[in-house]
Design a binder for these strands. Structure first.
Length: 485
DNA sequence: GTAGGGTTAG
């Protein structure tokens, strides 16, 4: 009975819930009773392959058969709700469990929702639930803390993340391999590979063995800094330690070579994957397609796009967006629009990033009206422009000297609770300088500084150039002198 | 035998 349960679980994790059901039949034939464990396995199987509605139907049928959902059933359903992004529904289910019923929420249920809230950057809500859980007498463990630390770090609150990590240690909760891997990953993404190395050493000293996730995070850290040699060395170390590089490791290397503009080496690694019996997935293909597009090797990229589909790998929104970018740059808007249509025909929905790519290309070549058309299309599709969308459009307006429009967008961007970053301010300031509007250039420099940013080298050199040009009135010169000082 | 935290692409 247990063997059949284990096998059913395996199939469910491979996305074959149908085989799970066959095994349920087998179990009955063998004369075993059905129990909640096998039902939970199937429900969880549906949730694993994003079929929450089917999971709910099955649960309903099970209840009609007279089985009570267990805490594990609730755990799976809560995860399912979080997975589709419905935190509110997950919280409602939690409340329902608390107020009535035989299953009170436990550590797993709370940790699942806290993790989901953190991933959606709802940090306050995450912390609130964390407090609630503690007041209910449920002690957080290493899983709960790891989710919180990662969430705060990824949302740009490193101090709070550090605070939570300290709190965890003070509560005598020992970091495990996932906690250390997260720290390695965070330092790498910050560009501090040395500190990541220190963490790796530390975990080994403390008897926690790094796994493939730890190594892959570090590998990516090297690749992000263009340290391909170090990345290669790490691959060797992984072999030595018996932690065989996997598809993600190879994809990371492909990306590393693409980012240092060595597409030949990237292609070589890609072919090695086949020799090693590893099948590239959609991420591998997309990485390479993007790299080839950026290296203006468009025919090769398009070939690969066909090849992936003959291998049964289905392009997703990232794949299409990479191609749209490549086509905009190398073949023109017409081709890009054609692929956009192909994408929608295949049922792949463009997202904000896809539109940002098109709008950026159009702004680059000065076709602001077309850019505005795509901006409206983005809105009409119910998508949200993000900070990048505004930044791209502002840059487009500045390039044409349409400063009033640029400032209008800056306001709209802030209304949309997107805060302008240093790039946006620098673009605006340079726009005013090019328009011979020094007072406004200086005004926005002040605004930028008061927001905690600085002029970049490009902007600064424009100011210096202006100072030396001799075209300034005495009063302007004074203003600029004061600013530069 | 069943539920929670993991690395890669635009």
């Amino acid at each position: 009975m247990h063997s059949i349960g284990i096998l059913a679980n395996c199939y469910c994790h491979f996305g074959r819930v149908d085989f799970g059901f066959s095994l349920l039949g087998k179990r009955l034939k063998l004369g075993y009773f059905l129990d909640s464990v096998i039902f939970n396995t199937l429900i969880n199987g549906y949730i694993h392959c994003d079929k929450l509605p089917q999971a709910a139907i099955l649960l309903d049928q099970i209840v009609k058969l007279g089985f009570q959902p267990t805490i594990v059933t609730f755990g799976a359903m809560v995860k399912g709700l979080c997975k589709i992004g419905d935190n509110a529904a997950a919280l409602r289910l939690l409340t329902k469990m608390r107020s009535g019923g035989h299953c009170k929420p436990n550590l797993v249920i709370y940790s699942t929702i806290i993790d989901s809230l953190c991933k959606d950057r709802l940090l306050k809500e995450g912390l609130d639930l964390f407090s609630t859980m503690k007041t209910q007498g449920i002690k957080p463990n290493v899983v709960t803390y790891t989710s919180l630390v990662r969430g705060f770090y990824n949302s740009g609150c490193p101090d709070q993340a550090k605070h939570l990590l300290t709190e965890m240690l003070e509560n005598n909760i020992t970091p495990d391999v996932n906690t250390y891997s997260m720290l390695v990953d965070m330092f790498c993404k910050d560009g501090d590979v040395d500190e990541a190395q220190v963490i790796l050493q530390l975990m080994i000293e403390r008897g926690v063995t790094p796994n493939i996730i730890t190594y892959n995070a570090l590998l990516d850290g090297y690749c992000l800094r263009g340290q391909i040699k170090d990345a290669k060395k790490l691959i060797d170390i992984m072999h030595q330690k018996g932690c065989e590089p996997n598809r993600v490791s190879f994809t990371t290397m492909v990306n590393g070579y693409c980012k240092v503009r060595n597409t030949d080496k990237a292609l070589k690694i890609f072919h090695e994957m086949f020799q090693k019996g590893m099948t590239p997935d959609v991420v591998t293909y997309t990485t390479l397609i993007d790299g080839l597009c950026k290296a203006s090797r468009l025919p090769l990229a398009l070939n690969l796009f066909k090849e992936m589909q003959t291998h049964g790998v289905i392009p997703n929104v990232v794949t299409y967006s990479s191609l749209v970018d490549g086509l905009c740059r190398n073949a023109g808007l017409g081709e890009a629009v054609a692929i956009l249509k192909d994408m929608e025909d295949k049922g792949v929905k463009p997202n904000t990033v896809t539109y940002n790519i098109i709008i950026d290309s159009l702004c680059e070549v000065g076709q602001l009206e077309d850019a505005a058309k795509f901006f409206s299309e983005l809105i009409s599709k119910g998508l949200q422009p993000d900070c990048k969308t505004y930044g791209i459009l502002i840059k487009g307006f500045c390039k044409k000297g349409l400063m009033d429009e640029a400032i209008q967008l800056l306001r709209k961007m802030e209304e949309d609770s997107c805060s302008a970053d240093d790039c946006v301010y620098n673009v605006i300031i340079r726009g005013y300088i090019h328009n011979d509007d020094l007072p406004n250039a200086l005004h926005y420099s002040d605004v930028m500084v008061s927001n905690g940013f600085e002029a970049d080298a490009h902007t600064f050199s424009l100011f210096v150039g202006l100072m030396c040009s001799g075209n300034l009135s005495e009063s302007s010169k004074d203003l600029l002198q004061k600013f530069l000082e």
